[in-house]
Design a protein around this nucleic acid. Structure first.
Length: 275
DNA sequence: CCTCCATCCTGTGGGC
DNA sequence: TGCCCACAGGATGGAG
C-alpha cells in the first residue's frame, strides 16, 4: 500500500511535529519491527534525548536525520502507517513502535509487521540495503537514456522491473500499473525489448502519476488501509485508471480492464491500448 | 550478476 | 450464519 506518494505524504505530515524537536524516548513493542537494527537494544538507547534535524525520503524509505550523525529509518511495509497523537490518546491495535516528543507521541501502527525501523550510524547505513536503492522516482528521475540503459538486456517483464527498487525507487504495485497504463505499455513486455519511444513514454508517465497521487494524499485501499498521520484516508483510490478495475471499461477505449498475475503480483491493464 | 520464488505476518472478504 | 481459504499495497535472501 504505502508507495512513494503515501510515504511522501507521511513525511510532510510528520515534519511539523518532528523537525527541530527532541525525541525524549522511544520503544518498540515487537522485536520483529527492529529486525534491521543490527543490535536490537541500540534502538531505544540511540533515540533517547535525540534532536531531529530533518526528514527526508528515498523511494519508500522515510529517513529522519538525528543529532550525532544517526539516521532513523522507517519503512511502512504493506500495512504500516504513522500517527501523531497526544499522550494518553487510546492506542490502535498493533501500535508497535512509539516515539515521544515533549508533547506528542509518534506511533507506528503495523498489523502485518512487514514494516520495520532502525536507527543507524553512518557505517551501519553504508552496509545496509539502503545503498542499493536506485534513483528516487520523483526527485531523481533518470533521463530516458539512463533508464534505457538500466533496462537493457533485462529479461523480466517491465512491470517487475518497475517494482525493482534498485532500478528506480518508489513505485509499488498500484503506481507501477498506473504508469504503464499512462504510457500504453503492456506490463508483461520483456524489459529489454522496449524501444526508445516506449522507455521515454514510461519515463514521462512517472512524474504525473506520482504527483497526482500526492495531490490527493495517496491511495487508501481496504481495511488495512494506509491512513495519513491525522487519520484521514488518501483520496486517490477513485482516480486510479487501471489498478483494481478488472472488467471495468478502460477510460481510454472502453475495453474491459484485464487482470493478470505477473511476478506473483496482480496487474491491471488494458489489452487494447497497452501493447 | 541475474532471475525466480518462498517467506515473513495479520485481517478481511468471498465462496460454499 | 459459520468456516475456510485465498489474497493483500513489500523487501529480502537463498537457490539455481
Amino acid at each position: 500500500m504505502p508507495e512513494l506518494p503515501e510515504v511522501e505524504t507521511t513525511r510532510r505530515s510528520l515534519e511539523p511535529y518532528l523537525a527541530g524537536e527532541k525525541i525524549v524516548e522511544a520503544e518498540s513493542r515487537r522485536a520483529r519491527m527492529l529486525r534491521r537494527q543490527p543490535r536490537e537494544r541500540d534502538f531505544a538507547d540511540r533515540m533517547r534525548n535525540r534532536r531531529v534535524r530533518g526528514l527526508r525520503r528515498h523511494g519508500k524509505f522515510l529517513l529522519i536525520d538525528l543529532d550525532g550523525d544517526l539516521t532513523w529509518v522507517i519503512h511502512l511495509g504493506m500495512s504500516g502507517r504513522m500517527q501523531v497523537k497526544d499522550p494518553g490518546d487510546p492506542e490502535a491495535r498493533h501500535t508497535n513502535v512509539v516515539a515521544r516528543t515533549a508533547d506528542k507521541e509518534i506511533r507506528f501502527v503495523d498489523p502485518r509487521t512487514f514494516g520495520f525501523t532502525a536507527v543507524l550510524t553512518p557505517d551501519e547505513y553504508a552496509e545496509s540495503t539502503l545503498t542499493r536503492l536506485g534513483p528516487d522516482a520523483l526527485t531523481e528521475l533518470p533521463r530516458t537514456r539512463q533508464l534505457a540503459a538500466r533496462l537493457e538486456g533485462r529479461k523480466p517483464p517491465i512491470k517487475s522491473l518497475l517494482l525493482n527498487q534498485s532500478i528506480i525507487a518508489g513505485l509499488g504495485n498500484i503506481y507501477a500499473d498506473e504508469v504503464l497504463f499512462r504510457s500504453r505499455v503492456a506490463p508483461h513486455r520483456e524489459g529489454g525489448s522496449l524501444d526508445g519511444g516506449e522507455v521515454s513514454a514510461i519515463r514521462r508517465a512517472i512524474r504525473p502519476v506520482l504527483e497526482s497521487g500526492l495531490k490527493y494524499g495517496g491511495t487508501s485501499l481496504g481495511d488495512l488501509a494506509y491512513l495519513l498521520p491525522d487519520g484521514q484516508a488518501g483520496r486517490y483510490l477513485d482516480r486510479l485508471k487501471a489498478y483494481g478495475r478488472e472488467d471495468e471499461p478502460c477510460p481510454r477505449c472502453g475495453t474491459p480492464i484485464r487482470r493478470s498475475v505477473i511476478g506473483q503480483r496482480s496487474s491491471f491493464w488494458c489489452p487494447v491500448c497497452q501493447t
